[in-house]
Amino acid sequence: MAYTQRLDGRKIDELRPMDAKAGVIPNAVGSAYFKIGNTLAYAAVYGPREIFPRFLANPKKGILRCHYGMMPFSGAGERVRPGGSRRSQEISMVIAAALEPVVDLSAFPNAVVDVYIDLPQTDAGTRCAAICAASIALADAGIPMRDMVSAVAMGQVDGTIVADLNYGEESYPAVVSDIPIAMIANTKEITLLQMDGEITKKDLMAALEMAKVATQKIYELQKKALKERFIRE
């Protein structure tokens, strides 16, 4: 039995309802909130500032450091233990790697830009939501950037390629693959590509094509969120 009707009734290439806003945390240099379905991410940028511990400093250019965290009450199931875990460390690392190609910190040697991302509510696709929020927050902070990064998960549920899986689909009792993809808006260069599960090469290429359209939709929203801050009365 193939997966023809999605659990929440979406079309196969339809994303969950999204919302984004820039400048939500007054204390931060730049901040943003990004919501996709029931997944909610807040990002706050601090810096460029002095780096601690000192041995991490790079005298040639500034460092981008991300801190990803799911809040204890965020998941649908058990309480998430606060503080870092092996999983959150890895995701922080891939988020930083996904944003690094666009962020230009050459003017800030020995300094660091910290991006704190927290998710008050999660329903799959957290690293993608985190990247989208972080990208808006970095732009809002006025950090020099070549472009924006937009991210979304693609996947295959029981033979059908779908966009933006929710938790129900991710844990569907069949062969499921979950592929978070981050792309640079203009060039559609891939800065993040991970996968859980299995998929054929042909289907993966089809999923990547779908991701181009999906990330473009997210990019339009990110653009709107940033421009909304500066509407002339």
Binding site: V29, G30, F108, A139, D140, G142, I143, P144, L226
Partner: peptide, 21 residues
């Protein structure tokens, strides 16, 4: 390269940043 306001002077395009360090 940044979030900012466009300035057009002749053939040169420049951006005045709205935020930044």
């Amino acid at each position: 390269r940044v979030l900012g306001i466009v300035g057009l002077s002749g053939r040169v395009l420049k951006i005045t940043p709205l935020a930044g360090p």
